[in-house]
Design a protein around this nucleic acid. Structure first.
Lengths: 178, 178
DNA sequence: CGTTGCCAACCAACTAGATAGTTGCTACCT
DNA sequence: AGGTAGCAACTATCTAGTTGGTTGGCAACG
């Protein structure tokens, strides 16, 4: 699974090679077919696992959305795997709409947290919780490894990272303040 | 070139098929090799052409960034090709940094326009022009066809589109107001 | 004008290598 | 003895890129 994750994150569904995955994992190819079915299936499994992982890893706190956004910036920076997997999924599998039905499970509690913060006047109610969440994710992706303009890299100057974090925090504040 | 653009936008570099491109264009494969060199080269050409096209199609006016963001939303909606090409480029070719050196050419005037608006107090100077531009692009991509959460589709309810446009405009205002 | 020679555009068919998925046998465990 | 996990080798298909010959246009020539 780890080998497959790395392979799919790097090359995508069309670019990934089953032989390479098996070799990297030190596993026989036929065995992996017995375990995971075909390539598409393996990709779906890898993606589902990562979806669950990130929801746990970066819990959303509706009362501190700016912090959430900055934590996501650092998370993408440290490990581009998640963003890349999700983006491959979007491009190769799901061209429009919600990226994965499975997201609804993880989304529920997050949206509730935002709704709560709204009810207590900590977050603006200009946006519905799904809209606010979409804005937060979008903002966090500004310098992401899937960005269309400049993508942050770990070896960028640390002062640059600091500045981006500050900008993200500030922009989030302005966006989500009542 | 048009056939190649459609093919690459849909399938990416690894997923695109030279035979399919040639067939769609009603052109012999050997001929396309004579004209464009290999697949990589063709992809680079397609991408460069689109880069030039969009800069012309959606000129940036530093004095009305909210409008720029909304125009981009509509542009992506009408034709996902550009976003998809750029995202493939990012995932398959340029994992970090500026997506394309060629962008610098188009970027120059845009950044100047922002700097001018800043000098006249229409846009905040909390951000440098490149930072402001990156934020604007990031914001415009919130519901883009490469979004990791929900991607807008032409057949979404029109009221939904209206709402998203309003949100983008409002958020841009808050972000870029002095 | 018709003919010839030349060159560039054109293309059907081919090649070499890759690639997802399978098979039939072996070894091990219970 | 029976069944399960494991695997080397195989297959059918696909795919980027090439080849060697053909056609059509054009200009010089007779």
């Amino acid at each position: 699974m780890n080998a497959a994750t790395a392979e799919f994150a790097q090359y995508g569904l069309a670019g990934a090679r089953v032989d390479r995955i098996a070799a990297a994992a030190g596993v026989n190819k036929a065995q992996s077919y017995a375990w995971f079915g075909n390539k598409d299936n393996l990709f779906a499994l890898v993606f589902a696992r990562h979806l669950a992982a990130i929801a746990q890893l970066i819990p959303l706190d509706g009362f501190d959305l700016p912090d959430y956004v900055v934590r996501l910036y650092d998370f993408y920076l440290e490990d581009p795997t998640h963003v890349r997997l999700a983006t491959w999924m979007r491009l190769e599998r799901v061209p429009a709409g919600l990226l994965s039905e499975q997201m609804n499970d993880h989304l529920g509690p997050m949206l509730e947290s935002i709704a709560l913060a709204q009810a207590q006047g900590v977050v603006t109610d200009r946006y519905t919780p799904p809209e606010a969440y979409q804005l937060a994710i979008g903002l966090s992706l500004t310098w992401s490894p899937a960005s269309v303009l400049v993508a942050a890299a770990p070896d960028d100057d640390e002062s640059e990272h600091q500045r981006r974090r500050a900008i993200l925090r500030e922009t989030a504040q302005r966006t989500f303040a009542p």
